[in-house]
Simulated scan of single mutants.
Amino acid sequence: MTTNTDTQLPPTVRDFMAAHTARDADAASAFLADDAVVVDQAETFRGRAEVHAFLRDAGSEFRYTTEQTGTARVDDDHWTVTVHLEGTFPGGTADLDYRFALRGDRIAELVIAGHVG
């Protein structure tokens, strides 16, 4: 695994993260495969409609800021983006890894979990 800067991320991952950070679920959903799977906090969302609803609603009850703190390339189809959050959610801060599995120019799977490292 190698650590990279944001500019080295595949455009799909970079653009998804920009849309997700801006809380634009419509734009973020555009990067998903039709059969995409997202796992967050041990909850699984399958297919474009479920994932779109998750992206639209996740964290909407809280105010928070995000800062991308790292990226890593596992291989051509697997990337990790680490994000630091601060806000009004329980605990007030969190470091999360967004682990992407790509299929072509689409996100096939995204696992959001506590940062390990």
Rank of each mutant, 00 (worst) to 15 (best):
V83G: 08
D75H: 05
D77W: 01
T44F: 02
V39M: 04
T69A: 03
A28K: 02
A28M: 01
D34Y: 00
D34W: 00
H78T: 08
W79Q: 08
M17A: 07
E86F: 08
T69C: 07
H78F: 09
V51Q: 02
T21P: 02
L85T: 09
W79F: 06
R56Q: 09
Y64D: 05
R56S: 01
Y64A: 02
V37I: 13
G47C: 03
D40L: 00
S29R: 05
T5V: 13
T80M: 11
T5P: 09
N4G: 00
E86Y: 07
A18P: 02
T21G: 07
H78K: 12
F31H: 13
E86R: 15
T71Y: 10
A25W: 03
R56P: 00
D6Q: 15
D77Y: 05
T65I: 11
H78R: 14
P10C: 05
T3M: 13
S60H: 11
P90Q: 12
T66Y: 06
A25C: 02
V38R: 04
A30N: 11
Q41H: 07
T21D: 10
T2K: 14
A33N: 06
T82I: 11
F16V: 03
S29N: 07
F45V: 02
V74S: 14
V51I: 11
F16A: 06
V39H: 01
V13Y: 06
Q41I: 00
D24K: 09
T12I: 06
A25M: 07
E50H: 03
R48V: 00
Q68I: 12
D75W: 05
H84F: 14
F45I: 03
V51C: 04
A33D: 12
R48P: 00
A27R: 11
L32I: 07
R63G: 00
D26S: 10
A19G: 04
A30F: 08
T82S: 15
T5D: 15
H20K: 12
E61Q: 14
T80N: 12
E61L: 01
F45G: 02
R14G: 06
H52N: 01
A58F: 13
A27M: 11
P90M: 12
A58G: 00
V81D: 09
D26H: 07
A27D: 08
A30Y: 09
T2R: 14
Q8H: 12
A19F: 06
T2P: 03
L55R: 05
D57G: 00
E50F: 01
F45W: 07
E50Q: 12
T80L: 10
D75Y: 03
V39F: 02
Q41L: 01
Q68E: 14
A53L: 09
D57P: 00
D35N: 11
T21I: 12
P11M: 09
T69R: 12
A19C: 06
A18I: 13
T3Q: 15
